[in-house]
Computed example of a mutant assay.
Amino acid sequence: MKLIIGNKNYSSWSLRAWLACKQSGLGFEELTVPILGEDWEHLKRNSEELAPSSGKVPVLWDGEAVVWDSLAIIEYLADKVGRDRFWPKEEPARAMARSMVAEMHSSYLPLRRSCPMNVRARVTRKPLSVEVREDVVRILTLWAEARARFGKGGPFLFGTFCAADVIYAPVVSRFLTYGIPMPGFAHSYMEAMWDHEWMRQWVAAAEAEDWVIEQYEIPVSE
């Protein structure tokens, strides 16, 4: 398999697809393309590897199969290696995990826009807007319920690492970057995520990158 991803410091959707590939246990080659760099528009128009996704990352190639969109990649890999590797085994937990993943995939636009992912940065910000605070409260409410109901078997949202943690990993990064205050249970969960071997690998690679995207280096005004 080959996974096409964007800059590790900035590309939240790439992080999700990369973690999904690691979770699958399958070997894969990764190719990083410098999104929004000088040659980005040319690369999007002329790269055969990016053509199926109209120049968006991530893209997973598996022989003749090609999958884009991080959630589609999770589902493709779950079909390939067994769904229990990605989703909680018990139906109530699996139902909540699926709902949380779908909500993250389609929601929280104020948080995404106001707090773009920047793994390397630690930013002192003005107070969050009402809309961003609402997103944060909603996410923390879901985290709290998942941990209280299904998190007894380990430090992650549903105990053991699963698709929900894959999808919310960039949120953990955003909360750390922008110094958003967290209650104790959320702080513990974020520590577990940041200390995960795969997250340490991603962060180290992000810190080693020399690409800079200026629009993501300057905090967006509230």
Rank of each mutant, 00 (worst) to 15 (best):
I4P: 01
N7Y: 03
N7G: 12
K8C: 00
S12T: 08
W18I: 03
W18C: 03
L19Q: 05
F28K: 04
E29A: 08
L31C: 00
V33D: 00
I35N: 00
I35A: 00
D39H: 04
E41H: 01
L43A: 02
E48I: 01
S53I: 03
S54T: 02
P58Y: 09
W61Y: 11
W61D: 00
W61R: 12
G63E: 10
E64H: 10
V66L: 04
L71A: 13
A72E: 12
A72D: 14
K80W: 07
K80G: 06
V81A: 07
V81R: 06
G82E: 12
F86R: 05
W87N: 04
W87C: 05
M100I: 10
M104V: 03
H105L: 04
S107K: 02
R112V: 01
V123R: 08
P127V: 04
R138C: 06
F150D: 02
G153R: 13
L157C: 06
A163F: 13
A164V: 14
A169Q: 10
V172N: 06
T177I: 05
I180D: 05
P181E: 14
M182K: 09
P183V: 10
S188T: 11
S188Q: 13
M190K: 02
E197M: 08
E197A: 15
R200A: 11
Q201N: 13
A204T: 15
D210K: 15
E214I: 06
I218M: 09
E222H: 09
